[in-house]
């Protein structure tokens, strides 16, 4: 039960970050978009600062709670490479990921983002179901 509350609390912080970036800087806190623009050399200082902050987030968490966040990775390295390529290519082609389409898109009631969220959720569910079926 408590993990649901932690999830909700974490979500509130994520939403706060997204709301602040929009209200103060007028930007969408979509991680794939920000990283993509950073790689393209667009708005280097602000996009770089956001990514740096994002990387420091778990460090702040560790300082506050006295232990690092739990990360358990089960995927073997070939799967990690394939997954990374798909996530990188797919989020650029689809103009967003769980943050841009998922958080901001749904909050903006964007039909495009609704379609994107349904699509990546269905694709993710099918993928994990197949992984479990073949016990990978």
């Amino acid at each position: 039960m408590s993990s649901y509350w932690l999830g909700l609390a974490g979500g509130l912080f994520i939403g706060l970050a997204a709301a602040l970036l929009l209200l103060l800087n007028g930007r969408i806190a979509g991680i794939s978009g920000i990283l993509g623009r950073l790689l393209a050399g667009d708005q280097l200082p602000t996009n770089g600062a956001f990514i740096l902050g994002l990387i420091l987030g778990p460090v702040l968490y560790t300082m506050v709670f006295g232990h690092p966040p739990v990360i358990t990775i089960t995927a073997p390295w070939p799967l990690l490479i394939a997954a990374g390529l798909l996530v990188g290519f797919g989020t650029r082609l689809g103009s967003g990921c769980t943050s841009g389409h998922g958080v901001l898109g749904l909050a903006r009631l964007s039909p495009r983002s609704f379609a994107a969220v349904v699509t990546f959720l269905v694709a993710g569910v099918i993928t994990v179901t197949l992984l479990r079926k073949f016990s990978l």
Partner: peptide, 26 residues
């Protein structure tokens, strides 16, 4: 592009359990 891209992303997301935000943060 929106639908194909999102589907490819979803497959990768399921394969490793990472989307861009958590991957970069960790």
């Amino acid at each position: 592009p929106l639908i194909i891209g999102s589907a490819l992303f979803g497959i990768g997301w399921g394969l490793a359990g990472f989307c861009p935000g958590p991957a970069i943060a960790s």
